[in-house]
Design a binder for these strands. Structure first.
Lengths: 354, 354
DNA sequence: CTGTTAGCGCTTTCAA
DNA sequence: TTGAAAGCGCTAACAG
């Protein structure tokens, strides 16, 4: 009894894929003894479908027995819907984006959608995603990645974590409130010279963060001097240099809020700079960072951090995008959930006040 | 002159997507004055196609002018190929996976494929990806995520960063060689009591790492005592506890290699534990970590790390998977590129030897 | 060298 | 309550 040569490979580390003909809907129909259109309607959960319970039963049974899986391409061709959402992020190593993606993914799954994540520049990513997705989320917080000054055409898109006139609808977190909160915490501790590190002001996210800082400072009757705010253009690991620079200014700040990412290298860079200058945290300098991963907890001293509701941002982004896909008008929005300040060990009263 | 209500929205933060009818191939054909099949053949770059240059020109021109983009679903339905590769990783926050994904993405793009990344458990992810991809890469290094003891059926799959009988073909890095290299570095510095932290031995990756350690120790005539190897089951932030535990053992190791991830929290955890015990690095303890992000550089002292060729692993994974997709037999493979030890500031001679 | 044609597998009226 | 039939947009023989 000669065996088919195709199934020769045992499990010896060599895999030769079997290519059995896929089960089609018509196979299911045949087994269930009904027409293919009945199968289609039973499976699509069409509520206004009238079908005898026993018939539906037979269909479902056949589906299970044959392990039938609908052909996505055929369905997409017919319905002009892929039931997938794309998300383009500049860099998967940036934990802020992956946290947003996590929230988006979860919400998308709840609604029967699949989230497809791709990283890189929009110009390169969009073409390969087009046609595979019904809508696009793009998270861009750095000015360099701004590039898509052209809105993705033809496909409903939502800008995440940034608001940009000309780029269509967006969803953001309340960065201003968060930074104000953090600044207030430092003020409450007695600090009067507080440094703020943000990224390029060409991105509104950072202008909003600076606004939060200024609001809190002014409300406390403190100077919101521009030289306390450092606008950092370098995208990479600039935490070290930026912190050095701010700490060289006179009068030297007694507190510092690093309100930009990528958070892991920027946090570590700030700490390295303090170490370099012999500045002790929190004795000589109070430090707050923007965080989105549990890293703050593992550092010694544990770092006080401002947590933006990034997962919620992703989740809400999906809701807004689906509206857009459904043809509704969608305005710029902000997530309700407030940022939370996690006070740990790097914030204390300033040197003079103890 | 009544405007269409559809295009009412200006750029006031309110976006209402225009839904113009998509350009089809037949539109291009009409404009170019040729048959649709000619367009198809010109676009597919069919080499054995004979077409007058001017005709091809007209077609290409029409494509550009109309900004035609082929309908992916229709093509996929016809060819039974999606030209997309799926990759399922347990967690996007784990930088090892994102680095593998980066390499895979790059290589896939080179070959005209799109990499679709999804995170989560296989059982949940696979169904939503099926039908959208021609093949699947799955990276799983922890035993918990093992779950897919059932091979993804019907779809060519490759296990990445792990080798598991019963799960089909795989691609791995030379973890054994890497760990041997790191261990040798510590031995060369004069260490004789070297601790090793790995994860669950149920995953071969960690057995191979332990083997590399043992090989180096034995080659140097040193005891490769089992109590120097700590098998850590917890997946999360266990670096702190694991390090504490290993440093409590007698005789206390003078060097430690944390050969497991997720690297950021495990590295920070190890450092926190040293801090806790008043153990100075590298004076009292030399430390090497497994790394895949530049974090090692930003810590003070900068951490010596073993760099596995993860991007290359991803790139080779694509090559192997495409072979599988083409119906070739594919065996387990290992990336050629050797791991590299980046000696920084956390490794030095042991206390007694200076 | 270019056009005709037959589907790919599914959804969705419409008819029975 | 179920079946028939017409495509969705594209590719790939094959015919001219």
């Amino acid at each position: 009894m000669p065996t088919s040569p195709k199934k020769a490979a045992a499990d010896d580390g060599v895999t030769r894929p079997a290519k059995p003909r896929a089960i089609r809907m018509r196979d299911v129909a045949a087994v269930a003894g009904v027409d293919i259109s009945v199968v289609s309607r039973v499976l699509s959960g069409d509520e206004r479908l009238v079908v005898r319970p026993e018939t539906r039963e037979r269909v479902l049974e056949a589906v299970t027995r044959l392990n039938y899986r609908p052909n996505i391409a055929a369905r997409a061709l017919k319905t002009a819907r892929t039931m997938a959402i794309g998300m383009v992020v500049p860099d998967l190593a940036n934990t802020a984006y992956t946290e947003i993606a996590r929230g988006a993914d979860e919400r998308a799954a709840e609604l029967g959608y699949t989230l497809l994540v791709a990283s890189g520049r929009m110009q390169e990513r969009l073409p390969t995603l087009e046609g595979r997705i019904d809508g696009l989320l793009y998270a861009v917080a750095t000015s360099d990645s701004t590039a898509p000054h052209r809105l993705p055409e033809q496909i409903p898109s939502l800008l995440v974590n940034r608001r940009e006139p000309g780029l269509g609808a967006s969803i953001i977190a309340n960065d201003e409130e968060g930074v104000a909160l953090a600044t207030q915490h430092l003020i409450d501790l007695g600090h009067t010279h507080i440094g703020l590190i943000v990224a390029d002001f060409s991105v509104d996210t950072h202008r909003r963060r600076a606004a939060g800082y200024r609001r809190a400072m002014r409300a406390a009757g403190l100077p919101d001097a521009s030289e306390s705010i450092l606008e950092t253009a370098f995208d990479e690991a600039g935490g070290y240099e930026a912190t050095l620079e701010l700490l060289r200014r006179e009068p030297r700040p007694t507190a510092l809020f690093v309100a930009r990412g990528p958070t892991v290298p920027w946090t570590l860079g700030a700490l390295a700079a303090c170490d370099e200058l012999g500045v002790s945290v929190p004795d000589d300098l109070s430090l707050i960072v923007l965080s989105d991963v549990p890293i703050a907890d593992y550092l010694r001293p544990a770092v006080t951090s401002l947590e933006l509701p990034l997962a919620t941002l992703g989740s809400r982004a999906i809701d807004q995008l689906l509206r857009l896909i459904d043809g509704e008008a969608v305005a710029d929005a902000m997530v309700d959930e407030p940022p939370r300040l996690m006070v740990r060990e790097t914030t204390a009263a300033p040197p003079g006040r103890r």
